[in-house]
Simulated assay, not measured.
Amino acid sequence: MLLFFCGIELDEDFRNLSEYGIHEFSEIIVFLKTMNRLRDDPPSRKLSVIVQTSSSLLNAATIPVEMKDSSTVNDLRELLLSNKILPQEDYLFIHKQRIMRDNCSLRWHGVESGDFLYVFKGTVSRGEY
């Protein structure tokens, strides 16, 4: 099992959770390692999703996109940037009212064909409590 907090893997060096900045209600991501990923992972599926930009980007454009569900949010960002659909900026992607993590797959986020993904200019920074 692998544990991540704010994109940082929690080591097995027996540090206290507070040393990582983990507090009550912090979100820890758990990945289960498997011995045979090919056997355990479902085959990749092609998704048809709609990327909806905010009103400050391209006058709230609706962009149909096809990608594999194994593609990451970074892959989606690069596709939109390389096709000059989005200008070179920092963006947040939102699915079902949750900020999507750049290095996680669309499958990991629970994205299904027909879903809307919303994109906004900006970044996320985590402040101290």
Rank of each mutant, 00 (worst) to 15 (best):
L2C: 13
L2M: 11
F4Q: 13
F5K: 00
C6Q: 15
C6D: 15
C6P: 09
G7P: 01
G7D: 02
G7T: 00
I8L: 14
I8E: 15
E9W: 00
L10M: 07
L10W: 05
D11P: 11
E12C: 09
R15Q: 14
N16K: 14
N16A: 12
L17F: 08
E19W: 04
Y20S: 04
G21F: 01
H23S: 15
H23M: 14
S26P: 02
E27M: 02
I29M: 05
V30I: 15
F31T: 09
L32D: 12
K33C: 06
T34A: 13
M35T: 15
N36I: 11
N36D: 14
R39G: 13
R39A: 15
D41N: 15
D41F: 09
D41R: 13
S44P: 00
R45M: 10
R45F: 00
R45G: 03
R45Y: 11
K46G: 09
L47Y: 05
V49H: 07
I50W: 12
V51N: 02
T53S: 12
S54Q: 08
S55T: 08
S55K: 06
S55Q: 10
S56M: 04
L57C: 08
L57H: 06
L58A: 13
N59C: 05
A61C: 05
T62M: 09
T62K: 12
I63S: 00
P64M: 01
P64C: 07
V65F: 00
V65A: 06
E66L: 05
K68N: 15
K68T: 14
D69N: 12
S70D: 09
S71T: 12
S71R: 10
T72F: 06
V73I: 15
N74Q: 15
D75P: 01
D75T: 12
D75G: 03
L76Y: 01
R77C: 05
R77V: 07
E78G: 04
L79E: 10
L81E: 06
L81K: 09
L81V: 10
N83P: 04
K84Y: 08
L86V: 03
P87Q: 09
P87V: 08
Q88F: 13
Q88L: 15
Q88V: 11
E89F: 01
E89V: 02
E89M: 03
D90F: 04
Y91G: 01
F93N: 07
I94V: 12
Q97H: 07
R98M: 08
R98W: 05
R98L: 08
I99C: 06
I99D: 05
M100P: 04
R101T: 07
D102I: 00
N103V: 00
C104W: 06
C104P: 01
S105E: 07
L106T: 01
L106Y: 00
R107Q: 06
R107A: 08
W108Y: 13
H109F: 01
G110A: 10
V111K: 01
E112A: 14
E112F: 04
S113C: 02
D115K: 01
D115R: 00
F116L: 14
L117A: 08
Y118D: 10
V119H: 01
V119R: 03
V119T: 11
F120H: 10
K121N: 03
K121G: 02
G122F: 03
G122T: 00
V124H: 02
V124G: 10
G127T: 12
Y129G: 11
